[in-house]
């Protein structure tokens, strides 16, 4: 087994009385697209800054390793990694070409080679070097700045690229486009990506593996299907996608006090007179039908007061509308195999 590119071993970081990272452990393999996902303040940015070298773990606060070497004390410029910042952090007094050349100039690369590599890097992010090279960052659109920031990082041919919410400031269409491009750069160049985001859809779409963070801890580590289909805690179930929560007693499993997660698309509704065979059926009342375009969400209330959402593909409400009206009686039907038993969350 090869040495992981990045390894966190029980890393802790405290700012005054505030613990920003608690016992963080994970390892990232070469070429992996690894996302750190969580709400703001969960410690994901601190984790990335620990990896970049802007922060140092507490004394006895574990080890940060890059390519097997402990780098706790190393400054960012000694770590041989590249980073794309949330607000791009382009140097406003330098042209696009000078921004991209900055890292190469620090390495004392010969000017002719710098010119070549800057040109190649701008080409790689699909910015025409002759058009954009001499422009000031202030004269670029958000998407173009993003590309320059990416070129500035890639031109150094890093083996490890850190990205701190790089698409946060872009509009939806551009964001989708860049998601696709980033993923294909990751595949094509074989660079390991560590990607911080609060956008669960983005993380699911792009990542090989995701570390979901909550309250300065890693709440769950896994591939997108593992995270989505087998959430470990209620937090993960709620933060990634939508989820219903059922008590063991309500679900008819006889395990009162234990909470189960059930994805809305795994819950079916049936008319009381036509129960679905082989499934658990719970009588319920329709509360609302929410039209979402490609999906239809029906909110129901079980007789014990538990609220559930059932999602189904929209088959065309103009042609064949669903029979569920507010106040109608129905059966909430699910297979127990789709229930996911949740662990209690650490305090």
């Amino acid at each position: 087994m090869s040495v992981p590119v990045v390894e966190f071993r029980n890393v802790n970081k405290t700012f005054g009385a505030h613990q920003a990272a608690r016992n963080i452990s994970f390892s990232i393999d070469n070429g992996e697209f690894f996302s750190i996902l969580g709400p703001s303040g969960c410690g994901k940015t601190t984790t990335l800054r620990l990896l970049a070298g802007f922060e140092e773990p507490d004394a006895d606060g574990g080890e940060v390793r890059i390519n097997g070497e402990v780098v706790n004390q190393r400054r960012p410029y000694e770590r041989k990694l590249a980073m794309v910042f949330q607000n791009y952090a382009l140097f406003p007094h330098l042209s696009v070409a000078k921004n991209v050349a900055f890292g190469l100039e620090r390495q004392k690369v010969p000017p002719a080679e710098i010119r070549e590599r800057v040109k190649a890097a701008l080409d790689m992010v699909q910015l025409d070097p002759t058009t954009f090279g001499s422009r000031a960052p202030a004269a670029l659109s958000g998407g173009q700045r993003q590309r320059v920031a990416l070129a500035r990082a890639l031109v150094l041919r890093p083996t490890l690229l850190l990205l701190d919410e790089p698409l946060g400031a872009l509009d939806l269409k551009l964001r989708k486009e860049m998601q696709f491009e980033l993923k294909s750069l990751n595949r094509r160049l074989g660079i390991t990506f560590v990607y911080v985001t609060h956008d669960q859809e983005e993380a699911l779409t792009m990542s090989d593996r995701i570390a979901v963070m909550d309250n300065a801890r890693v709440a769950q580590l896994g591939t997108p299907p593992e995270i989505y289909e087998q959430p470990r805690t209620a937090f993960v179930a709620r933060f990634i996608g939508e989820s219903n929560f059922l008590d063991g007693a309500t679900a008819g499993l006889g395990t009162g006090g234990v909470t189960y997660a059930l994805r809305p698309e795994r819950l079916d509704l049936a008319a009381p007179e036509t129960p679905a065979p082989g499934k658990t059926q719970l009588p319920a009342t329709v509360k609302a039908v929410v039209y979402r375009g490609e999906m239809l969400h029906v909110r129901v209330v079980l007789d014990d007061g538990t609220e559930l959402v059932a999602a189904s593909r929209n088959e065309g409400q103009l042609r064949s509308p669903v029979p569920w009206k507010e106040g109608a009686r129905c059966l909430a039907a699910f297979s127990t195999a789709d229930l996911r038993r949740l662990e209690a969350e650490p305090a």
């Binding site: 970049a52 070298g53 590249a82 980073m83 952090a89 382009l90 900055f102």
Partner: peptide, 18 residues
């Protein structure tokens, strides 16, 4: 001066003098 500019420079290999 945005502090992240200095961090960006540092990651790009700029030591304190640079």
């Amino acid at each position: 001066l945005d502090p992240s500019l200095l961090e960006a420079a540092e990651v790009l290999g700029a030591r304190p003098v640079a």
